[in-house]
Amino acid sequence: MFEARLTQGVLLRKLLDSMKDLVQDANFDCSSTGFALQAMDSSHVSLIHMQLRSDGFDHFRCDRNLSMGVSLNNMAKILKCMGNDDVLTMKAEDQGDSVTFMFESANQERISDFELKLMDIDSEQLGIPDTDYSATVKMPSAEFARICKDLSTIGDTVLIAVTKDGVRFSTTGDIGSANVTVRSHSNVDKPEEQVVIDMQEPVALTFALRYLNSFAKATPLSNQVMISMSKELPVVVQYRIEDMGHISYYLAPKIED
């Protein structure tokens, strides 16, 4: 039996909205540690790793490890039927072929349940090596989203270059070119607005903007985003989910022909 109750049910809707553009079908892995998902997009260029710890839920029970295969799009459609302030409870039997989502309004006056059929999905688990990254940038997630969106009006790829002074996002395209530089700065009163650059050595890598714009769908989950890069390695774009876990996206760099 799997049962998980989340007072802030809207969190799961935001998570689904941040994954469904990249991956169609995926397995949610439920265990005593929590609720997790690892999935690659169909072209094997990007990977999502999402983890919600069991202690972040108001109630969490998972008697045995369970893999729930779902269409992320259909699950997102169901979660759209949940009120913004609703409490969410997920339930699934160990050998069952469905998962139930129960939505309770804050005043308990409306209770609804939606059942989603599960699917058998062959998933490939990838081993992600622990890496000491050359550079890690923490910045406001909305700023990162804006930069990716703005640069997409000019080009398809972005060169992200980190130096100790700042991080520069550059693109070129048929109509011209664009650069945005974000400098490190601290803000004691508003930590969510600060930009922190932790750099061992300068690093510059090129990525497809299309994927970064998909990752930015996670912006409502966190005020800050952490971008970790090393030479010739996939970038990690991580959004921490307060008191619960994270959603991390890995994206393979582009290389010069």
Partner: peptide, 14 residues
């Protein structure tokens, strides 16, 4: 145009 790397080149299948 730069070539797109693939994640399989970096992460091993478990």
């Amino acid at each position: 145009t730069p070539l797109q790397n693939n994640l399989d080149e970096f992460f091993a299948l478990i």
